[in-house]
Design a protein around this nucleic acid. Structure first.
Lengths: 194, 194, 194, 194
DNA sequence: AATGAATGAGCTTTCATTCAT
DNA sequence: GATGAATGAAAGCTCATTCAT
């Protein structure tokens, strides 16, 4: 990458980083482009060289951060050492929850957007290797495929919704206290579908 | 209620009704107070007699609509004819889901805000009769009370999160197709806690 | 005065009293009619039964308070026991300064409006007895009359301007410290004209 | 100064010039920012690049015009050719009075704000050369310094207050008629303090 | 590629005034 | 006479966007 290319990349990163902080602390509505560029230390016109408007930046930010989150879970959870799909799923979920616990701003930012759909898309689109990690997954046209989709959809939505309240507000209990219940519930749901 | 009083109430209702339509169709950010008052047929100044700003109106709207939703379920689901708490819970959930199915705008509007907390608050605060409907509920200081809270929290978050995708986008399946699975999952979760 | 008349008078007084407080503390521009009527405990429409607008009220207030101020000085300074016109003038000035010292809000309110003109008008118009208090005053068409007017004009403007800074800010010195100088200056100016 | 810099300065000047005309002719309260920018031929947003609001502009205007006024008197009154401090003072006062006579709008605008304090500040802060013009001025800690301050304070307040009425309304006499009296009074006050 | 002064449409908000009760 | 809900003109101000440099 040339010096010029690096400089460009650095400006864009700086804008996204700054925007993330402002979006999470004040909300996207209350954040102005003026604030972003001022904090990022670039001129106003520069913003428009990289983004259409702040909503465009926001979407790029969501995709970027979600991918990081999920890729980290797939890379570091150690799921591949486990035997059953359920066990694999549980460690992946745990890894994500602990990432979010460490980074509550990210949780607040991604909230309501870690859906079954996004999870699926990220795996499928970007990470060729991961699709194969779960064994015995029925193909897209298999009669059991729909079943699996509903199962994963239910689990992911449940995890996503409960983690928000539990991590950010410790309501009704803290994440540590909640985890055993969550695991039991996930196993119970998995059992429902088999 | 005097003529004047009635007129006031009518103006406020008109503003809230109009705002609901605009908020749900274009989002609160893209809705201007000018639009609200124009559609509601009142003067701009009148808005400020009743609401601090559009966010104030929004919060009043959320509370109002949530209460309606939950009260309807408690009044018309017929839960009192059933025997077990689980059965009662299921018909109440179903009633709410069918209300939301009939009124997807309301679902989109309330989304992410039908939480365990809100549900609990509405019952406890406003509806003295309802508290008694579920039998054998442990008192606030009972050791089993926390358990129950976690159980209900999990179920409500799961229902709230899944219903959004299922009703609004039929993704991954339609509400009709999803309901049997949802019931089974709820029963499975209930079983986890007993 | 009938009960009804009294009630009216009381409302008007209440409005003027309240307005005085608000005008002096926040300035007339930043005071709204809504605030005045709310603090005075009357309805908005009532304001317009007594005053055209807040500037109308303000002018009535100035006249009313100026008259009070000057009348008090003429009634209580004891000038009639003194011999020379200069001595009389000095005790009247002192009385006014001590009134203003006791009531800095009034000073701020009347500031820039205690002029030679107003002083003269108040004496001439309202108080038949006072005109005669100063002896040997040349009549309106006397050649020396203009001389006297210029003399009094100079003294009153000087007193009015200096008292503002001295009383409200003790700048450059306090009223107590300044008074001896002021007296000497007044006597010096009087001497200039004779 | 670059083209851009010049353009900026010109815009700001245009706004201040226009505002001065409007403030003096209709008063600051009755002048709107819309009017200012329209007359100045700039966009509304441009106003806020240079001023916080119209009161901010007003203060900058007062400082700017006062400095001009006083600097002109010091530069063109020819005080340095005279011998005594009293004579110097008189020609400086005369220069200012004639400037105000030529520019009654400026007089009305600055009225009540040509104080001893402002005069002092302008000389001290901006004009290193002027401080030395008056001979034998006691230093800040000299026992006679306070005396001098009170003397100048009294004179400046008197001149400021009387000139307003005399120049703008010829009341009680015209400036030309008043000047000899004013000079005599100033000399009398100076004498009081020595 | 980068800048940032300038723009102006359009927003929120205020508040003097009216008038039916 | 007294009320205060309703009005709506008009103010202040913001901020995404442009474009000459």
């Amino acid at each position: 990458m040339s010096r010029v290319e690096e400089n460009k990349q650095q400006k864009q990163n700086s804008l996204m980083e700054t925007a993330f902080q402002l979006f999470t602390s004040k909300g996207i509505t209350n954040t102005t482009i003026s604030e972003i560029v001022e904090m990022a230390g670039v001129a106003k016109g520069t913003f428009y060289l990289y983004f259409k408007d702040k909503y465009d930046l926001n979407e790029k930010l969501i995709i970027h951060r979600s991918q990081q989150l999920i890729r980290h879970a797939l890379d570091f959870s150690g799921y591949e050492k486990l035997d059953t799909n359920t066990d694999k799923l549980l460690v992946i979920v745990d890894d994500i929850l602990f990432q979010l616990k460490e980074n509550p701003l990210l949780l607040r930012f991604l909230n309501k957007r870690i859906s079954w759909e996004m999870f699926y898309k990220v795996i499928e689109k970007n990470e060729e290797g991961y699709a194969a990690v779960f064994e015995n997954i029925p193909g897209p046209n298999d009669a059991n495929r729909k079943n699996l989709e509903i199962e994963l959809f239910t689990i992911i939505e449940m995890v996503s919704a409960t983690s928000y309240s539990v991590i950010l507000n410790s309501d009704p209990v803290s994440l540590e206290e909640y985890l055993p219940y969550l695991h039991r519930c996930i196993r119970a749901i998995v059992a429902c579908f088999h």
